[in-house]
């Protein structure tokens, strides 16, 4: 689906939301919203090694024009991808209607 805006969701280990936003701003994102969350992966590995990890995560939601979406996703992959301490995954979902964004002054805000 081709839309003019997409929202990028990036799930990273807690404490890395600033790194996510820094990477996203480099490519023109203006702002984001951070939600605290808890991951549920790696149950078996935890049993195997008999340790428990409280998998605290942060989800960063960034609404961006589709034009710059790919750049931002690449940049996130480099900065906070699975091979970095941030251990992040990022994906985008299409957005059909948008209200509350000045299209011209987007970079300023």
């Amino acid at each position: 689906m081709e839309t003019k805006y997409e929202t990028i969701l990036c799930i990273v280990n807690a404490g890395f939301s600033d790194a996510v936003m820094d990477a996203a701003r480099e490519h023109g994102a203006s702002g984001g919203t951070v939600i605290h969350a808890r991951g549920t992966a790696a149950q078996e590995a935890q049993k195997l090694f008999n340790i428990s990890i409280q998998p605290e995560k942060e989800i960063v939601m960034i609404l961006v024009p589709s034009k710059i979406k790919d750049d931002i996703l690449h940049s996130l992959y480099q900065a906070v991808g699975l091979k970095t301490p941030g251990q992040g995954i990022a994906f985008s979902i299409p957005v059909t209607n948008v209200v509350g964004i000045n299209e011209e002054g987007q970079d300023k805000k």
Binding site: Y5, T7, L63, I93, P94, V95, T96, N97, V98, V99, G100, I101
Partner: peptide
């Protein structure tokens, strides 16, 4: 949806401290 978005746009502008964004995902 469109009525709702219009109302939201109006409120984002005219409400004190009420700036925000709204978007829809199908």
């Amino acid at each position: 949806l469109s009525n709702c978005l219009n109302a939201l746009a109006l409120r984002f502008e005219n409400t004190r401290n009420g700036k925000g964004i709204a978007y829809s995902v199908p």
